[in-house]
């Protein structure tokens, strides 16, 4: 069994080198305690619902969420999951939500595009028709789609949280380019094109939670982490069943091994 420890050690070295690959010269991110952390972590549904409100009222003006469909919002493990509606397409919350949106569809019989109310099967509409339009409307900076943002940055959830709460006064003597804002948490340097999006009371939470900047940043991060990894709860649950099964099987096989080798010196 010593050898297994040795191989585990090799594994540890490799994962450490992988972790080192991820270390950059960035500023120290704030490390929040997240409900989804750890091998038993799940999403905080209430926080994720509030986070969706932030996304809708603030972020979605510039940022898309193109890999998320309306029905996804009521899937198992999602912010609006309701066990009464195992088929998320029938969730009244999602149906009502989808209807509020206007989707361009087509072409129709005469070859024209037309507008229709959203369906649960539609993806959340992006604010701009394409990247070029997005850049043109944002002074040349492209607001990234947020579907994968917490997985597409190092330590992504903490990064998003740190960035949203990272707008501080510009240090004395620092030149800020036109249209840029000072944020030392930004991965692309200290200056970011996005102006501070969240201010105290930017939204009025429907559940009465106080809308401090930290609270809103935390909630929207919870939501975006779900959007990037919507199957996390399912995956961890399955993982535990697999681990327990493999552990029991390894005990049985070890017994088998001992039985086969019982009379053999080795």
């Amino acid at each position: 069994m010593l050898k297994w420890f040795a191989s585990l050690a090799v594994l540890a070295v490799f994962s450490a080198s992988g972790a080192m690959a991820s270390g950059g010269g960035e500023h120290k991110l704030k490390h929040e305690h997240w409900h989804f952390d750890g091998v038993f972590g799940t999403y905080d549904k209430a926080a994720a619902q509030r986070g969706f409100q932030i996304y809708q009222e603030v972020c979605s003006a510039c940022h898309g969420l193109k890999y998320v469909a309306f029905y996804n919002l009521a899937d198992e493990g999602a912010p609006f999951y309701d066990p009464e509606f195992p088929n998320s397409n029938e969730s009244p919350v999602v149906k009502a939500l989808a209807k509020q949106f206007t989707i361009t569809d087509g072409p129709d019989d005469s070859g024209d595009m037309f507008d229709r109310p959203g369906l649960t099967s539609d993806k959340l509409p992006s604010p701009f028709a394409n990247d070029m339009a997005a850049k043109a409307s944002n002074g040349g900076a492209l607001p990234p789609d947020l579907s994968l943002i917490t997985r597409a940055r190092h330590d992504g959830s903490n990064y998003v949280y740190s960035l949203l709460t990272g707008y501080i006064d510009t240090p004395h003597g620092m030149e800020i380019a036109a249209g840029m804002n000072y944020n030392p948490m930004f991965a692309g340097g200290d200056q970011i094109a996005m102006a501070q999006p969240l201010y105290e009371g930017s939204v009025e939470y429907t559940d009465g939670t106080e809308a401090s900047v930290e609270q809103m940043a935390k909630d929207v991060t919870e939501f975006l982490t779900w959007a990037a990894d919507p199957k996390m709860e399912q995956r961890k649950r399955t993982g535990w069943m697999v681990m327990i099964y493999l552990f029991l099987l390894s005990l049985l096989l070890y017994g088998s091994y001992r039985a086969v080798w019982r009379d053999v010196e080795h």
Partner: peptide, 16 residues
């Protein structure tokens, strides 16, 4: 049988 045992232990690391 020895390989089978080792495979399952390896699968546990993989699964993790």
């Amino acid at each position: 049988v020895k390989d089978a045992f080792a495979i399952v232990v390896f699968l546990m690391i993989f699964s993790w």
